[in-house]
Each structure stands twice: as structure tokens, then as C-alpha cells.
Design a binder for these strands. Sequence first.
DNA 1: CATAGCCGCCTTTTT
DNA 2: GGCGGCTATG
Length: 712
Amino acid sequence: MHDILSQQLTASQRKAVSHIEGPLLVLAGPGSGKTRVITYRIAALINSGVQPHNICAITFTNKAADEMRQRAVALGASAGAHISTFHSLCVRILRRYADNAGINPNFSIYDESDQARCVKQAVKDCELDATNFSPARMLEAISALKNNLVDVDRFKSSAEDFFSKTLAKIYAHYQHILAERNGLDFDDLLMKTAFLLQSYPDVCCQLADRFKFLLIDEYQDTNHAQYVIAKALASPHGNICATGDPDQSIYRWRGADIRNILDFENDWPDATIVKLEENFRSTANILELADNLISFNQNRKEKKLIPTKPSGKDVVVSVCEDEIEEAKTVALCVKELTDQGASLKDIAVFYRVNAMSRLLEEAFIRNKIPYQVVRGVEFYSRKEIRDVLAYLKVLVNPNDEIALLRIINTPARGIGKTTIDKVRDYAAKNRIGFLDAIKKAEHIDSLSKVTKTKLTGFVNMIEQFRMDLTGKVAPLAERVFVESGLAAVLKARGIKEQDALKNIKELIKGAAEYDERVVGTVHELLLLDYLQQISLFSDVDGYDTSSDRVALMTLHAAKGLEFENVFIVGVEDGLLPHAKTDAYNDENELEEERRLFFVGITRAKTGLFISYAKYRTIRGQMLRTIPSQFLFELGIDLTETGQGGKSQVAETDDLSDAAPHFTAGQRVRHKSFGTGRVKEFIDMGENSVVVVEFNTGQTKSLMVKYADLSTI
DNA sequence: CATAGCCGCCTTTTT
DNA sequence: GGCGGCTATG
């Protein structure tokens, strides 16, 4: 079988597949058949006698893991290889070696909103002002520390200035709160695993013995913690195969360190490097644009995209009047494509921010085009779903105060804030958990008799549910939904709540599928496993590739996918690159935004449609936009009209119209105030006002027509 | 203690 | 322009 497989591969691909022992780096450009190579590699390892369960492949999303598993099996490889994301792998390791890691294996995984609550509490505990130390900013800082494996102690000892010292306090409190609730956030999963592997060489050896071959996809987007984990797991045997493309690194903001892939050769001196530069996905003209664009990045290793397909359809750049027209244009183009025989599932629309999906959805609905917004997590963040899950979480992890507080009065059962405060006080005084305090409601003198009864009723219900803990998940979820009273409340409400009911049904259906999947596996706590798994659900995981609908997603979510036809909308300054990035001061941030566009473009096989709107309503205000600089970097003559060239501009744009316009983030120079950055532009025709923060520190509002600002 | 209504906040990307 | 949190009222 192996030989037959090899014949379907190019020479470089074959090299990447057949190189079995020792470190291997596969530098794979977009559309180079990287996924195919990894899958074949798994099959080849198994063919050469490696036990499937000795293989550990790490993918970027659960969806990618599922697909890889299926493909490997389709190639004839027996199932049993461990294929998952870094986070899922860490959950497994942490549960198995919980004692060594110093945690309770029944931990809850805290998502962003849970984290926000905890950090808010921490800020409050430290008696700090939430405006100066906003939870979001603190969380971001803490996340960055964790990704770099800086724990509380280390950060405390290095903190010198006021801000760092304060952050250290909040960090310490935050970790304390999580520990009390037996909760781990996403970053903890990585950090705790990395520390575990560093402190316990024997654990590390056991794992290396279990996973004798390590494969890591999308290596360019690993952060420091993931890097340490990978290195520790592979060090005993050196059988590490990393694949990735530095030009597709788009998660720097999340701690991804591009040096991990650039320095692979230094980390593993005897590494074999295989480059996959041929592109089997896109037409030559699409690749040319991508190549032009990415070559504007200075901080990169030169790499050519070698097309294997001839030039195809012209790339279309559409200039629309506003965002509504843009959405309409996309919908009409989709119709045209389907009229020509394209199927909807071969079409995708990418945008920079999730908020941009709404207008597109409306346009698709109006034009009766089936679509799906690819955002898996949103399902699990719906109120009714979170409610049911909170009940389940409390059953598994009674210390999960976040979940407990959520359900104690949901549905309303007469347990209000005052009661909760009293119970909390009691818990704190007696140094017991919140749930334990409720159990002792009888002993809390400040509570009225009625309240005590209510609390005992609640505890009894929880205890009842707990009897079912070791069984299947779906029946328990259904039971909780009904007996908690949630069902009655939803059913009593109007037609609007039918959606909620449907969602719960969907949840139970999903749980039933889980039960089905794990049938036969021995688990002391299936519910725990289920909850931890769905906590790690990602955006693309909810993407249903089998249904015939247009896919709408962010450029980030598009990573690793490919489509016959791709639309990229909103290619405007302030959106791509996004104004929230520091693209105008920090070349690295600009380059990452450029890579993001590059990733989007290189998803397209034959049809590529790029668009921007001349006016866009932001925060209720319609503003004149500036086309993204990236558009010009594509190397398309944007003034060109007609069909002759390799690209076509759908509508001509009169860029030369009226007084100059500015956008936030733009750098400008003023005769007497010097250089500064535009904070805001208020479009009032010829009386437009621009607010500029000058480098001197002062902020000025200036009338554009008098100010004589020049752009830099 | 529950509910409605108001104010003020934020709005990048995600495992 | 949308959501969450807070307050005033029943």
C-alpha cells in the first residue's frame, strides 16, 4: 500500500512522508498539500509497524483533528492515533497527572466570560479602580504572562513599577479565585502542563514513551507554552515533525511566536527540512497577487509560490458605495456563480471582524441564499445552554462557584442577592465552600425560615441529580433541564422562546452523539469529559462542510480551509489592517494584518472577489473610508476597467472627490504641532473635523479645511 | 425579591 | 448601535 500512496505524491511530499525517525520540519506554503502529507505520514508510520496509539498529532482546531482522523482511516491506517488540539491534549495530561500538577482532576474550564467574572472579583478584592484596571486589559496581560510561562511568583519578584506591582496583585488574586473554584482557564491548561513536564522528568518520560511520534501542524502559530510542551514531549526520542508556514502566522496577538518555527533548526540541530513550495490549490493569477502582497513583508524568509495550475478567471475587485451595497454585490455575485453551476458549499465570504457578518446575512436572506455563519462557540454561549451546562458543571465540580451562582436562582426560586451574601459570609467565616455553606443553611442564623427551606430544596435537587452522575450524559442533561424548572419557564413563555427550546434539544442531541461516540470506553466520569470537551470547542468546529450553504467567517477562522470561490469584504484602512492594531507604529502588527489578507487570498482555488465600500457606517456614523494599502500591494492596476487585464475593477472609484478624509490611526503632520495620530474624523462635508493626538501629548480638534494636515 | 427601565460601556482576531 | 449592569419601583 505504501508504494501506491507514494506514487500520488511529489518528490518533496514523498520525502516528508517517508522520513520516519528524528526531527523533521516541513515548511509548507499555502495549498501545498500539507494536510495530505501529514495524513499520509500517519498512515506511513503505522504501515512501517508503529502502533497507532504511539502517535500523537496536534492540530489547530478540533475540526481539523476530526478530519485528519477520518482521512487517515480512509487511507487504510488503523484508528487509535491520538489526534487533538494542544488544549485537548493538555486536559488529558492534566487529568491523568493531576496529583503531580497539584490540581483536582474534576476541574472546570473557564471561558472568557467566566474569566471576566473572576478577574472582576480579583480587581474588587484588591480594592482597585475598575476604570484604571479594566478587567479586559488585566485579562489580556495575565494571558500574555501565562503564555510565556510567567507564574505569579516569578512575576511578583520581577515587578518593579506601580503598574506591574498592581498587576501582580491582581494576577495572584485571580489565580487564587480560580484555584478555589477548581477552575482552569485556557492559558492555565497550557501553563500547568508545561510546568508539569518541566518539574517531573519521569512524567515526561512516561508520556514520551506513550507518544513515540509527535506531529504538530500549524507550528508557526504555537506560543511559548506550547513550544515548551512540544519540546519536552519530543526530547526523549527526537521524533518530532512540525509543519507550518511563517507567512501564515496570524496569532501573534495570542502569544504565537513565529520564532518557534524559524528557530526549529537551532532547537533540533539534526533536523531534516523539507520545503513544499508548489501550490496545487489556486490558479496562477491568484497566486501572483498573493505573492506580490506578501513580499511587502520585510521580516520574512523569501519564498516563492510556485503555481501548478494555469491562470484562470480574473480576480474581481469591487468598489461599492457603502457596506449595504457591498453585501448586496456579494449576494448577487453568489447567485451568478450558482447560475453558472457552482455549488454553494464551494463559496465562502471572509471578513475581518465578526460584526460584519450581519449585513451579509441580511443580504443572503433577502436573496434567499442558504448560508451558515461559522461560529461554533456561539451556540454554547447562549443563555439557555449556559444555564443547563452550569447545572452539569456543579454536579461534576461542586467548587465551581461561577456555575453555582448562575443556577442558584435560575429559574427564579426566591433566592436573591441578600441571601447569597449571607451564605457567602457564612462560607468565608467557616472556611468552607459555597455549596457546603448552603447545605448548612439551617445553621445560618441570619436567614429566615422560608429562605432556609428554599436553600435546602435547592441542595436536595442537586443531590438528586448527582445520583445519576456516572451514567450517560444526554438523559442526565434532559432530566436537569426538566427537573430544575428551566423547561417549565421556557415553555411558559411566548413563541420567541421556541428558539431556546430548539437549542436545548440540539444540546441534548449533541450530548447523545457524545454518548454514542464514547460507548465502550471506560471513564469514571463521562460528564466531566463531555463538559471539558465542549469547553474547548472552537469557531470552525461548528462548521458543517456537508451542507450546501455559503460559509461566512472571519479571516482567522478561514485558516486551513479552501474554497472554489472566495469573497473578501471590507478591505479598507481601519478594518484591514484593523484600527485596533498598532499597525501604523509597529511594523510587526502591520505585517501580521498583511499575512491575514494573504491567508484569505490563498484559500481561493479559482474565484477571488475582493471588495471595499467607499462609505461605511461605524458606531452609527457614516464615514468616508480609505481603501486598504494592501489593495495597492496586490499589484493590480485599480484604475483599470474593462475585461482585458488579469483583473477587473467592477466599478470605477472617484478617489479624487471633495476635501481630504482621515481615518483613526492615520499618521499626520501639522505645520506647528508636529506629527501625531488621528483619533477621530468627523465627516461634515467641507466642515469636517479631525481630532489628532500629537506626539507632544496634546490632543487637538482641527477643521480640516484650515488645518493643512499632510499624511505621512 | 423580581422586574422594568435606564445609563453607560464597548465594538479585533480565539484555543 | 447592542448588551450588561445598576437602580428604582412594585
